[in-house]
Amino acid sequence: MTDPHKPEIGVALIGHAFMGAVHSQAWRTAPRVFDLPLAPRMSVVCGRDASSSQAAADKLGWESASSDWREVLERDDVDVVDICTPGHTHAEIAIAALEAGKHVLCEKPLANTIDEAERMTAAAEAAAARGVRSMVGFTYRRVPAIQLARQLVAEGRIGTIRHVRAQYLQDWLVDPEAPLSWRLDKKLAGSGALGDIGSHIVDLVQFISDERVTSVSGALRTFVTERPVQTASGGFTGTAGTERGPVTVDDAAVFLGDLSGGGLATFEATRFATGRKNAIRLEINGSRGSLSFDFEDLNVLHFLDLGDDSHVNGFRRIVVTEPEHPYVSAWWPPGHGLGYEHGFTHQVVDLVRAIHDGEDPTPTFGQALGVQRVLEAVETSASGDRAWTKVLEGSVALAR
């Protein structure tokens, strides 16, 4: 039920697998925890199959189901389109939704190609002139400790940034018999670890530092080149002699990056870090101090102030659960930690408030296009002799 005392904003969810379930939880929770100016109405969930879409609607709390996203865009009870489908579908759905006057939340990475991302950005900018808003789901920005890190950098607490180390470590593909999912098909996913999780750490580094990655030198690697093919029933072949298909994306990406403020960054994104489930690790070293964060301990930020007396100087452990910390006052008492799902709730909160206030929410499609250009530069460097490659507006060229 929506709040009868507030104007409604109808939401359509396109895609109802893992990420769709997470977004559904956020739409259900946000208006019950935060005081929003508009009341989200979970109008319809849409998938490729009518029966599975209806099952998702029943399970996840949506009022109705559809198997035709184009029909969804024609509905009067839909104001926001939340896109949680594979990357190769993002451009078509997002552009059509914006042209239909619907606000758009699109999962990352924005698209599979620069051309698609540029067309999406152009459509978003044209829509914004008509009051139609758009945002990209780089959700880790909305972890309170990440917000605090950005605040400390903006306040000059660590001084000039010299070094950044950014890692996103997972291990869900270590088993060579793990099935060949859509995420391992370049036509559907665009890239592998580079785009799927590397895009997150590129965005986080640029968000926290308020600087750009201006040139890169990188390498990509695919460790397992063939995997068992999934069946139509959702199972997969995994015994000797059964069908296997090619892996057409990278399993791991490593690259160096120049920052616009003169600092040097290192990035590592892999789905082969045995024992690491979802470790997003960031360390930023500046002329006056340092910051360190690990998503597997997401309520904590480590901060060093070089100005402290030498006999007590060192990293301090800040538990980011105080009411004055970003987003936290709406939740639990100090010390009662938040989890993975809370960032998605904060994403809904920020989007709804921006739509109500007539402002462009962040990250914008244009900012996500900037991340996409970094990824393209990494691919260009890795496909050659790993030469330093500039990240340019609109194109990529070898650094001089």
Score class of each variant (00 low, 15 high):
242 T>I: 01
125 E>R: 14
98 L>A: 01
96 A>N: 10
229 V>M: 10
253 A>R: 07
338 L>V: 07
64 S>M: 07
2 T>S: 14
335 G>L: 01
132 V>W: 12
62 W>N: 08
4 P>R: 11
10 G>A: 04
219 A>E: 10
49 D>T: 11
267 F>Q: 01
42 M>S: 04
341 E>V: 08
27 W>F: 15
228 P>Y: 07
14 I>F: 05
366 G>A: 15
399 A>Y: 09
216 V>G: 07
92 E>P: 01
12 A>H: 12
111 A>I: 09
249 V>C: 02
241 G>T: 02
104 V>W: 13
71 E>K: 14
38 L>Y: 12
136 V>A: 07
314 G>I: 05
353 R>K: 15
103 H>M: 07
11 V>H: 13
121 T>Q: 10
38 L>D: 09
151 Q>K: 15
397 A>F: 02
238 G>R: 15
66 S>K: 09
79 D>A: 10
222 T>Q: 11
386 R>K: 11
396 V>R: 08
192 G>Y: 07
265 A>H: 03
198 G>W: 09
183 R>T: 11
86 P>E: 06
285 N>R: 07
22 V>A: 04
27 W>V: 11
271 R>L: 03
281 R>I: 13
64 S>P: 06
155 E>Q: 15
308 D>S: 06
184 L>I: 01
108 K>V: 06
66 S>I: 08
204 L>S: 05
398 L>S: 12
262 G>Q: 08
327 Y>A: 02
31 P>K: 10
377 A>R: 11
359 E>C: 03
88 H>K: 10
286 G>Y: 02
22 V>Y: 00
229 V>Q: 13
348 V>H: 08
256 L>S: 13
241 G>E: 05
215 S>K: 15
305 D>K: 09
34 F>Y: 15
173 L>Q: 11
332 W>Q: 12
369 L>K: 08
331 W>Q: 03
82 D>W: 04
11 V>G: 05
324 E>I: 03
126 A>W: 02
120 M>A: 04
370 G>F: 02
97 A>I: 04
167 Q>V: 00
136 V>H: 03
178 A>F: 13
291 L>C: 04
60 L>I: 01
207 F>R: 02
279 A>S: 14
387 A>E: 14
283 E>S: 15
214 T>N: 04
286 G>E: 03
121 T>P: 04
199 S>C: 11
358 G>L: 08
16 H>G: 02
226 E>C: 01
179 P>G: 05
127 A>L: 05
29 T>F: 00
262 G>H: 09
